[in-house]
């Protein structure tokens, strides 16, 4: 199948064209819904000086933490970066640049980037360090700061099911940042748990339409749980 068929045969092909110094936007919240095999492929390639845009940066030995460990990351754009010792060490030594971004602003930066909106006003961060140096607009007597959109050379996302045309459905809260990330990459690569034929997914249930997806691959996932809390009954 050609035309709209987005399926590639191996992870090397999935990340073809990734070069030093590029910006990569990654979906996921904590370790939930992260494109774990695409991250491992970036680690294998040894690409360096990367700017990674992701809500979090994994843990020491899993997820984006792997790229930190191998010193492949120049800059992280994230909202919360706890639970990662390697990160802490590299940040304190000045080796790693960090742009802390409020979580909702980060999501909107990706959404705007994918939607062709170069910047947007938000009240979030006004009067704080986040607002320093950013233009202020006053609307209905309220102060807002101007935040710029983000686009990436690559976006890497993880979905539950995808059809060959790249239409994606996410599972539960593994959706999180993935739909916005998928829209904001010049090349968007999706890895999925199951590839189905076009027509098998209900068109009205698609979260990410295939127009945003350039390459797709089926993977197997560890799905590590960061905080396993259970109740007795």
């Amino acid at each position: 199948m050609a035309g709209f068929d987005k399926v590639v045969s191996c992870y090397e092909e999935a990340m073809q064209g990734l070069e030093d110094g590029m910006t990569v936007i990654a979906g996921g919240f904590g370790l939930c819904g992260i494109p774990e095999n695409l991250i491992t492929e970036i680690q294998r390639r040894g690409t360096r000086e990367l700017t990674i845009v992701s809500n979090n940066c994994g843990v020491d030995d899993f997820g984006l933490g792997l790229l930190l460990k191998d010193r492949q990351v120049k800059k992280m754009v994230s909202s919360y970066v706890g639970e990662n010792r390697v990160f802490e060490k590299q940040m304190l030594s000045g080796e790693l640049e960090v742009e802390l971004t409020p979580q909702g602003t980060l999501a909107e930066k990706m959404r705007a980037g994918g939607a062709g909106i170069p910047a947007f006003y938000t009240a979030t961060g006004y009067g704080t360090k986040v607002g320093e140096g950013k233009p202020v607009g006053v609307f209905n007597d309220r102060n807002y700061i101007l935040e710029e959109a983000i686009t990436g050379d690559f976006a890497i996302v993880k979905a539950w099911k995808g059809d060959r045309y790249g239409n994606l459905i996410y599972r539960h809260t593994a959706q999180n940042f993935n739909p916005m990330a998928a829209t904001a990459g010049r090349i968007t690569v999706a890895e999925v748990e199951e590839i189905v034929e076009p027509g098998e997914l209900n068109p009205a249930h698609i979260h990410t339409p295939g127009i945003y997806v350039d390459r797709m691959i089926q993977g197997t996932f560890e799905k590590r749980i960061e905080q396993r809390l259970v109740r007795e009954i």
């Binding site: 706890g82 802490e88 802390l100 909702g104 961060g125 986040v130």
Partner: peptide, 15 residues
């Protein structure tokens, strides 16, 4: 002290 980030707190108080 170690900066962990604001997560969603800035959005929550602003909204």
């Amino acid at each position: 002290r170690m900066v962990k980030g604001m997560g969603g707190a800035m959005d929550l108080v602003a909204g």
